[in-house]
Design a protein around this nucleic acid. Structure first.
Lengths: 136, 136
DNA sequence: TTCTTGACTTGGACTAGGTCCATTGTAGGA
DNA sequence: TCCTACAATGGACCTAGTCCAAGTCAAGAA
């Protein structure tokens, strides 16, 4: 994660303790926290950090392409730090747990020109849904 | 759409003017209205219909599998009446317009067993994103 | 046709998730 | 060390959605 801090500094990001804590909370694989969860964990390290700061910082990380925003359930958005390794998501319809997955082939290729309606198609987000082993 | 009303009646749905209006508002292809938009259109036909009734009715239609719920942008959920013809969605990243599209192949097949983590995978929702002709 | 009843609707309060903004604080260059 | 532009704060505000007690009415029974 320190390479993330490096990249951010290199892009002229002003480094504050708040931003550092948010970036550190968002570390690891299969991490898909809501903004509120990020805030709760950040508070454990920096008690006075404000909710608005967490929202601002997450928004900036998304804009910089360092974090991917997910809305798998229509409720709180989730933030996925695994932005530099293209992947899709597998979600349990019952408990909501999320795994990063890697389908074969390029989902974009499955959309023929005639089905593009003149759009310039850039990405394809795939959400697989089913029951996880604990819920099955 | 009258066949929808028939199906609902056959399932023991009590037919009220409110439910009829909501079902009628949700007719046609490439229809992806928010609950608020459905309410606004329903009010034009039945001025006293309550917001809660629209939410209830949409929830029931989704539970019955007659309508599909989408959350393409993390904001308001959208309701797609085209539930009996499997399809995916193409969304403009700029203006948010949504088209129903039909990719080739089965997206579920692209997820190998080793990438399923023991899940019983049931569906794959694909959202293609890009710029529509007007926004490009 | 009228009666009955339980399912449906209403509207207003409430909640979750998120945004806005004026004020205060501070990182980092001179 | 000082300055200043950028960042953080916290509380008000907003949007989407849920809940619930009271009232209404569709449709089967008589």
């Amino acid at each position: 994660m320190s390479d993330l801090l490096e990249r951010l500094r290199a892009r002229g990001w002003r480094m504050t303790s708040q931003r550092r804590v948010v970036a550190e909370v968002l570390a690891g694989d299969h991490v898909h926290l809501t903004a509120d969860e990020v805030h709760a964990r950040a508070v454990a390290h920096l008690p006075e950090i404000a909710r608005a700061t967490v929202y601002n910082t997450l928004g900036e990380l998304v804009a910089l392409g360092e974090v991917v925003e997910l809305s798998t359930d229509g409720r709180a958005k989730r933030y996925d730090p695994n932005a530099h390794h293209p992947h899709q998501h597998l979600v349990c319809s019952n408990c909501g747990i999320i795994r990063d997955v890697h389908p074969t082939g390029d989902p974009l290729g499955a959309l023929p020109p005639a089905e593009r309606f003149g759009f310039t198609v850039a990405t394809a987000d795939v959400t697989y849904r089913g029951l996880c082993p604990s819920c099955a």
